[in-house]
Nucleic acid binder design. Structure first.
Length: 292
DNA sequence: CATCGATGTTTAA
DNA sequence: TAAACCTCGATGC
């Protein structure tokens, strides 16, 4: 699930469902006990995503979550909660249940299943967090330090309603590329170059832009790099809207152009799609279409 | 029931 | 470059 689109979606969902009211926080699994105690009973004011990080602000404290490779939130609640929590596409799955309420009017949650690192509860429902790489309570200095290490996030365009600020993000991306000698494929996975891109968006954006993944980042013509930023922006926004990554948008059942399609013919030029290991991750590309 | 792999990152060597 | 970490579903025997 988790490239940048997942986290931005999650931030929106948490804002809708939890922001502005005191919540209850626990760690059924037991590995976030101290943090949960600090967050419990506080009012989550605002959730935001920055690349693949989720931050929930509660006054001077910030809850930081990074889902890593397979971390996930699951939401469950009564009909009110489901109606509220269904942000955007219907598949923002909110499980519903036969509701039972405590004397204080709060929904009685189901017992946690499996390893639930953190459970956050509102009156009408709750969210369970499993398998995150990071689940921590930060102060504002620590929060700033995390954010400072991240490159521009295409999904943070449009936040300030300032077209010049958005243009600066793209310029920063071009600047970051110009200063790396690694391949463009490696650069896209470096969260200091651009934040929020993962293995699927890397493969799919380079394919659609016809870029050879092994081109050195600092040799990529800005005339080619700027459309790459725009392509990633479009793809990430589609992912937020739809709740899943689907870069092939021509109706059929195929979801990706090259990701996990190694050994089959490229739908565009017929060349056999390749896969190779690059810095511990699998890289997928079409040697026929991606030549510059 | 055991093993493997996954849309990720950090640390050690 | 490799291993470690975190969890769960798919696959294989």
């Amino acid at each position: 699930m988790p490239e940048g689109h997942t986290l931005h979606r999650l931030a929106a969902q948490i804002n809708t469902v939890f922001a502005g009211h005191p919540w209850r926080v626990s760690s059924p699994q037991g590995r976030f006990i101290a943090g949960a105690q600090r967050l419990d009973g506080q009012v989550p004011q605002h959730a935001e995503a920055w690349g693949k990080h989720l931050f929930v602000h509660l006054g001077p404290e910030v809850w930081q979550v990074h889902l890593g490779l397979y971390g996930a939130f699951s939401f469950r609640g009564d009909a009110d909660f489901a109606a509220e929590a269904t942000v955007g596409a219907p598949r923002a799955a909110v499980g519903t249940l036969e509701p039972r309420y405590a004397e204080d009017g709060w929904l009685i949650p189901e017992p946690p299943k499996g390893a639930v690192r953190a459970r956050v509860s509102a009156r009408h429902g709750w969210a369970d967090l499993r398998g995150p790489t990071t689940c921590a309570v930060l102060d504002l200095t620590e929060y700033q330090a995390v954010v400072d290490r991240l490159g521009p996030d295409p999904l943070r365009q449009g936040i300030s309603q300032d077209a010049r600020a958005d243009a600066q993000l793209r310029e920063l991306f071009l600047h970051n590329l110009s200063r790396r000698r690694i391949s463009i494929a490696a650069a896209l996975m470096d969260q200091a170059v651009i934040a929020g891109v993962g293995n699927i968006y890397r493969a799919e954006s380079l394919f659609l832009e016809g870029l050879d993944p092994y081109t050195p980042s600092n040799q990529l013509d800005p005339e080619r790099a700027a459309p790459l930023w725009d392509r990633l922006t479009e793809q990430l926004r589609d992912g937020v809207a739809e709740g899943r990554i689907r870069t092939v948008r021509t109706g059929g059942s195929r979801r990706h152009w090259v990701y996990k399609h190694q050994g089959t013919a490229c739908p565009r030029c017929g060349t056999v799609i390749k896969a190779a290991e690059l810095q511990g991750r699998r890289l997928y590309w079409c040697p026929g279409c991606q030549r510059d």
